[in-house]
Design a binder for these strands. Structure first.
Lengths: 337, 337
DNA sequence: GCGACCTGCGCAATCGTTTGTCTTTTTTTT
DNA sequence: AAAAAAAAGACAAACGATTGCGCAGGTCGC
């Protein structure tokens, strides 16, 4: 049963020709005559020949594999991003290796190491929440493995990246609340390492400024994304003398925790307090009290664009060091529920 | 910049010894003396040598890669399963290649083909909802690539599989409803190809029988999982003369659609009608009207066990054909919310 | 009718490692 | 001190495919 697979060598022997001829024939090389070419192809079909990719990978120094490193597949954002990545990668005959950092930089390093060993052709990464330096990614340069960051991109200039600009949508989100009559609007931000650029906060400031609402720093609180931390942050906001009637929240899941807590405290959502957040996760569809609006960040598109950029890098014949850093920025969009 | 990576050959030249000696020294082969072994390791460290895995894969006919084929990563069940798979695979130095069938058998075949080309050592698969025959998986045998199915396993005897026994939990679920005083209990089943064994239905029958509740076939309806289909199915149930006060539903997401629809129809959840379903997805945490109970199917454990089984197959020296088919069945558990 | 050119194919090196076997050196035994 | 045994390392053949180069044989030109 365990027949070993046919090789070009076998084809060559049966046809009494050289293996190089077989190889070229299979690749439609012009220097092989039609007769032999046909004969080779016929025999290949008969034997059910399939090239041994591992041999080819080895010879070509190329594996047609891209590695994807991301925090957690269970987050809808990332599994959607994978779909975008696959949509571009598969048609190009690339296959996708996935590793989850679970938001731990040590895992991130381990995964990167493994992917390097497996000689992936390129890497797509969304960094973990406590990745503050990216030496481990920089190292890939010396192995000539290009890296493209997406969504959670490090805040340094010399990388390739695809991300969403949250500034405009943040302005829009706050203006949306203002239009609804809110005058005291809080902001609950995430961990400092995420969204270093703080486009969300900048948008928040800008909108308030634009509408001449004085900025009250005490209305800005932080959560580390855990439920407890979020509850504590909301508690803080609720204790302000000028209690906010609306809160812009770092992420839908955080908002859900906040909403849950607010309801426990007998606050009526969208009457006593309203929430707007980011991510536009699909479960809100089933909720009675979702955030009234959420900023869509197009994970699928981000994944697809990042993969396209990576392929561009892979294709470029020139020394990769010479390619200018490219930072694609997509527009986000406020979705009102 | 683009320095090419050091090889054992280079180490050999610098030390003026043979390549084989270097190789053996690095592997602590007993026939290499301590002096040379140390020298080799020192040099390897200096040069920052790393073995070329693609060469090794090629030579060893082994890639330390397992392919995972599943319907959709966006389903929490499957992304959790991936976690279980990674938990077993990574410590064993295996890496995970993922492909989504998106519930389309053609994709499934394509992915399988690609994975075969990439010479994965083994495959874990959860079949698509319209996979009725598994020839494409059977084919893997002739390439000596073992396949282990998990969760969505084909209903044939000669496969390896890991799945959850839903029979007992189904009985338990219905008894739970009966205990709550329900006497008219409907059942909304999924597409026929999924859960062919129909343990859910069997459990449903059993519980009713046990409690001497006559079985009314008109209380059994079907959905293809789409929202529309689910709504139609619920509508049917609601139109029965003896309208059910509780429904056992194929899957949480289906239940959510059903609940959504029921509420539109002004039914009060858990008063006019109650739902119990399967999967125990985590979003129910945020819902006002979740199913009152759900059957947990332990995706993480299923993934982990399936991977262990696969490794067992990979390890076995004997001809794989001789290994008896193993069908691991895990217990499910009714979680009351 | 003889060199120039084209066509069609074979030879052999190469990618980096592993591994069976053979050779050399060292150590032990008697 | 010589022979036998053990230890340490070298040689070379794989693994399967790609590819530069060279070498036939035929065709064409003049």
């Amino acid at each position: 049963m365990e027949k070993k697979l046919p090789t070009i060598k076998e084809i060559a022997q049966r046809l009494n020709i050289s293996i190089s001829t077989v190889s070229r024939a299979l690749h439609d090389h012009p220097s092989i005559g039609l007769r032999t070419r046909m004969a080779v192809k016929k025999m290949a079909a008969e034997l059910n020949y399939e090239p041994n990719q591992t041999a080819i990978f080895f010879k070509q120094r190329k594996t047609f594999t891209i590695g994807v490193i991301l925090p957690n597949l269970r987050e809808e954002f990332f599994s959607s991003a994978i779909n975008g990545i696959e949509a571009v990668a598969l048609p190009n005959n690339y296959i996708v290796l996935i590793g989850q950092s679970h938001d731990d930089i040590e895992n991130e390093k381990r995964i990167l190491e493994t992917m390097k060993k497996h000689r992936v052709d390129g890497i797509l990464a969304s960094i973990s929440k406590n990745t503050t330096q990216i030496d481990h990614f920089e190292q890939m340069k010396s192995y000539d493995i290009p890296v493209v960051f997406f969504d959670r991109v490090p805040d340094v200039p010399d990388v390739h990246s695809v991300s969403c600009n949250l500034y405009h949508s943040s302005v829009e989100a706050v203006e949306f609340l203002i239009a609804k009559g809110h005058k005291t609007i809080g902001y609950m931000q995430g961990p400092p390492t995420l969204g270093i650029k703080n486009e969300r906060l900048a948008g928040y400031y800008e909108a308030l400024k634009k509408h001449k609402i004085p900025i009250d720093e005490s209305l800005i609180v932080s959560t580390d994304l855990s439920t407890e931390s979020t509850e504590k942050a909301l508690e803080e906001l609720l204790s302000r003398k000028k209690r906010p009637t609306a809160v812009l929240v770092f992420h839908d899941y955080v908002a859900l925790d906040a909403i849950h807590y607010a309801r426990q405290k007998k606050l009526r959502i969208d009457k006593d307090i309203s929430f707007v957040s980011y991510a536009n996760v699909s479960v809100t569809r089933y909720l009675d009290n979702p955030p009234i609006a959420s900023v869509e960040q197009f994970p699928y598109d981000q994944g697809a664009r990042a993969t396209e950029l990576l392929f561009k890098l892979l294709d470029s014949k020139t020394n990769r060091q010479d390619i200018p850093w490219e930072n694609v920025v997509l527009k986000s969009e406020l979705i009102v529920h």
